[in-house]
Design a protein around this nucleic acid. Sequence first.
DNA 1: GCCATGTTGGCAGTCACTGCCAACTAGACA
DNA 2: TGTCTAGTTGGCAGTGACTGCCAACATGGC
Lengths: 205, 205
Amino acid sequence: MTAPDAPVEALRDRRRRETSIEICAAALDLFEAKGVHGTTVDEIAARAGVSPRTFFRLAGTKEDAVFIDDGRFADALSGVADVGDDIRALLSALRGVFARELELLDADAQARERYLRVRRLIAHEPSLLGAAVRREVTSADRFVPELAERIGLVDFDVRTALGIAGLEMRTTLDEWARLHDQGQTRSLVDLHRDVERRLTRAAGA
Amino acid sequence: MTAPDAPVEALRDRRRRETSIEICAAALDLFEAKGVHGTTVDEIAARAGVSPRTFFRLAGTKEDAVFIDDGRFADALSGVADVGDDIRALLSALRGVFARELELLDADAQARERYLRVRRLIAHEPSLLGAAVRREVTSADRFVPELAERIGLVDFDVRTALGIAGLEMRTTLDEWARLHDQGQTRSLVDLHRDVERRLTRAAGA
DNA sequence: GCCATGTTGGCAGTCACTGCCAACTAGACA
DNA sequence: TGTCTAGTTGGCAGTGACTGCCAACATGGC
């Protein structure tokens, strides 16, 4: 299944990613059990089996620990290509990236459960909400100019497209989580299509 | 002009408020000059003429220093009354509170300037954005159940009304700031009415 | 095997933030 | 006016997040 010319993932990179996952899981567990404020970095680091120094190198901040990812999604966003300098085409491409992400969630029950846990945690830990918003904005600030430059659109158009795609994504996840709490199961990708359709109609396009 | 039965503002309260304003102004100046990270609490406190200990009592956190207010707006929100258990009436009342706030801004050039400075600061200081979001959410978490209880609505309806009124408020300020940067001057209250009308039509009400 | 490069952990230092206590002061009341 | 109460202030010590620096070590290319 692996492309023959795909470079074998370096041991270092794999270790690094595994360690990040360990830290992330430890942080999630501890934050749930004792709250963010009640948890120290030393505890998270110990549980993840690394030194506090390494914790900070990988996690950045205590709150961010629970949001560590492998950068795959960010890469996918940055990797959007060959859409020409057309905002509609860009929106379509971004939707595809978000849809792909939802597809992965649909296929991975463990990831869905993890998402719900983080979501619950954010709901009653304002410091985590702050961190989540900060992460999102910071990442957009890096991503937008880079992409705008590459495909020849102004920042504003890229932000607009990203705003719409992001709104659809958030709405989809919100609705999905709401249905989930009511005991209903829906495919995220299907829901995403519904949201997209509804939003497109509302926007009069 | 002062109502005869209005209690004279206690000296302590006035001092406290003046000190808060000092801290807030000092933080704004220093954050603009040296960035949030480059500014220490000791510096802000010194500039405001208080001890660091007092700084924390009044400001809570370093980032929050720039957001200190007198609680008047929060009081106005909580003070919404006599609307019955009707979400439309509540929305209308909340709109009134927000409009009143904009009216005050319209009447106070200094406050408008301050608002723009904070806004600019937030735009390139993610930590401040995080703090702003955290403040807003925390305040809503306190305000919503309290108001819901008092006027006999479920939390969800209050959140919905607040969400709409807040969206209109933010949209108004965003648009106003955008026009301002283009050298155009508009009344915030007028703009707010426009936004409200447009949103009402878009929502099909 | 050997070197360049990246990773880790420890250490010391800075700074945000808090609890506690003693000095002070506004405001109420005799 | 004197006094008592309660709120405010600042200092001090302590915790914990976070960083720069350095030495030890592991990896990947040669």
